[in-house]
Design a protein around this nucleic acid. Sequence first.
DNA 1: GCTCAATGATTGATAGCTCAAATAATCAAT
DNA 2: ATTGATTATTTGAGCTATCAATCATTGAGC
Lengths: 140, 140
Amino acid sequence: MNIKISEQEELLFLLKTLSNQLGPKFERSTNLSLSRFELLYQLIQYSEISQSNLQKIVNIDHAAITRHLKQLESDGLVSRRRNPADNRETIVQLTEEGYKQIMSCQKDKLSFANQMFQQFSDVELQSLMVMLKRIQENIK
Amino acid sequence: MNIKISEQEELLFLLKTLSNQLGPKFERSTNLSLSRFELLYQLIQYSEISQSNLQKIVNIDHAAITRHLKQLESDGLVSRRRNPADNRETIVQLTEEGYKQIMSCQKDKLSFANQMFQQFSDVELQSLMVMLKRIQENIK
DNA sequence: GCTCAATGATTGATAGCTCAAATAATCAAT
DNA sequence: ATTGATTATTTGAGCTATCAATCATTGAGC
């Protein structure tokens, strides 16, 4: 029992530590923070999307979304406008420049990910993903 | 190839998101942030330890360690003193109060961890741990 | 039409983290 | 003994994240 608990505890710490180390390293590799990368990346798929829908996809707090997008807008990477059909919503879209930027990061991101998951088999990646998603469900 | 990359990407995002969600939830359950919990928890094992050694164990930036310990000291949970044998070092130790506090969190932490790893077998926990450690190595 | 609840976005407060630079003490080698 | 490199801690700057509160808009029910 005691051993099992320690293991859980260690995993808890490890998850946090790993993520703390991951962020800065990713940013140094790609010149884009992980969150901003994710936002831009999602905007490639959905050519237009409201902030609140974007928020549901990336699972970051509303407030953080607003701040990121405002900054990305002033950097010229996305455009934002009110939805005429529902003035509460803000619709976000990649600009030409934003598209170029995210595309030019792809190579760096790829090599970062390759290093990160060096010697992981597809089966392992899959199983890791499933476990992390289970944890996410468990703490909801 | 393309599929595999997406999977890596998703894992990257998932790790960050999970950790972002984990911290606040842990804190709400235990009234102690995950980092501070970890610091106090380590101090149970090593009755006395220098800040730099503690830093190596918990893998948080020096600066953050200093700030946490200063706050914990002013909360009366740890005591700090210079090492007479080497005046560069600060030696940290749990106080009576700190010991009581960390012990009273144990139950909450345990139930949090149990919920988080609900329906995980020992084998799964083990494999998860190994994979996360491998990632940590890979990005060093 | 009007009120009231809901939804979406924003802002303010607070806290965590990293990195880089500064300070202070120790130690090694001349 | 002095200089110079190393080690430990601290402080400052800059991000990102959460939570709570606020504001505007929409929509449902009377």
